[in-house]
Design a protein around this nucleic acid. Structure first.
Lengths: 221, 221
DNA sequence: CCGATTTTGTGAACGCGTTCACAAGCGCGT
DNA sequence: ACGCGCTTGTGAACGCGTTCACAAAATCGG
């Protein structure tokens, strides 16, 4: 355990999770402002574009370093660089998607990834009818080729049916993947060194269902 | 402002947001346990199936009421009922999806919704080539018909390109929708009485990118 | 060169959510 | 009937994240 001497490294290690989750939003807001011709932006302007309040934005950015100029604001282009660096988008890692069903195809064709430096590099499936197809400029390969496509730092995306997800997850981990994004509606278990995030479409709807009913009840009485 | 006299209602109003976000997970875990033949389940068992610790699960459930039996655990079937009721899934509201592109199709075909009582009831788009198509048993209708398909309590799902999202959002709100799930990579602004949730696929990847790079840096030094 | 003005960066207070730890309650065996 | 073991429900402590409010810093006009 080496004591971190560089302040840069201290900062990197100590960025709160909640802040990291917002950095991509700021990045997108900055791109938007840049397109509108802003060369500099105050925390107030940036916060509005990102949909947060300015105090939160300033504290978030302060975790990265002091990249603003008092009385002026933030240099848009420079801040894009800094956030991209913080997120590791300067040297993007490869993304491997497993499960080329409806959702998998949608993800493969989703333009939002490429624009931020993160593009899907490989599509894998087990269905022999799907393997070999060309989708979004990529040829679908068989899941057995997983070890060959995982090179160094890779992110795995699981878009399989729920029943296949845990096995696919295990195979990703075996192949050396340490960051996994799961779209299958299942709880996955992974070793402690693996980062796992999940996106569950039906859960989001159920949360809204709760709020919708709560509002309806309040109106009734 | 009537003072809530029924404890049931007090509970409903006071459920913390974080708890609500986990109730759907518990619901799914309970269905899984039921299929495995469990008629009763301890907080420990349920917590493991849901991927949380048992203390959290117990506190979450305590916000709904006292539906467990000390020394025994929770009746699986009964708890399913209670959580479903709390989430408003007993009388599910209709779901209207706008934007039948790749993602929209994937969502329309996603089985996970129907199994929990929340099914997509209408598909809308503006593309004349898409309108009229049959997808997942539904006929795609034109966005102009929005007022006709929104009946009472409805949830709106936005799966359009980013540039169209705000206008679609405004039209949903005008039609009376007060709960919106946004998949478009944009910050939407809504009136305060509207609940808005967002799912952003590229943001999730960028968060993983951060962790992946952090791990790689730690290994290097 | 200086004061007025703007905006950042941050210490402090606050609130929410998680975790801990245990008393209260329930069933079962004897 | 009664004590024993198991499990829930919950008050209390803790930690993280948000918000507030202001001092420090930078620009600009005179």
């Amino acid at each position: 355990m080496t004591a971190p001497s560089l302040p840069e490294e201290r900062r990197r290690a100590g960025i709160p999770e909640a802040t990291i989750a917002r950095l991509p939003v700021y990045l997108r807001a900055l791109h938007g402002l840049a397109e509108e011709g802003f060369v500099t932006a105050s925390s107030e302007e940036l916060a509005e574009a990102a949909g947060v309040n300015s105090a939160k934005l300033r504290k978030d950015l302060s975790h990265l370093g002091s990249y603003g100029t008092r009385g002026v604001g933030y240099d848009v282009e420079h801040l894009v660089e800094e956030i991209s660096t913080a997120l590791g988008l300067q040297r993007p890692c490869s993304v491997v998607l497993v499960g080329v069903g409806n959702l998998g195809r949608a993800l493969a064709g989703y333009g939002g990834f490429a624009s931020r430096g993160l593009a899907i590099d490989a599509l894998l499936d087990v269905d022999t009818a799907t393997v070999g197809q060309q989708i979004a400029g990529l040829t679908v390969r068989h899941l057995d080729e997983l070890p060959a496509v995982v090179t160094g730092a890779s992110i795995g995306v699981i878009a399989t049916p729920a029943r296949a997800a845990q096995e696919v997850c295990d195979r990703l981990v075996s192949a050396g993947v340490t960051s996994i994004l799961n779209f299958a509606p299942t709880v996955l278990v992974v070793p402690p060194h693996v980062d796992l995030r999940k996106v569950d479409l039906s859960i989001e709807l159920q949360i809204l269902s709760f709020h919708e009913h709560r509002k309806a009840m309040g109106a009734d009485r």
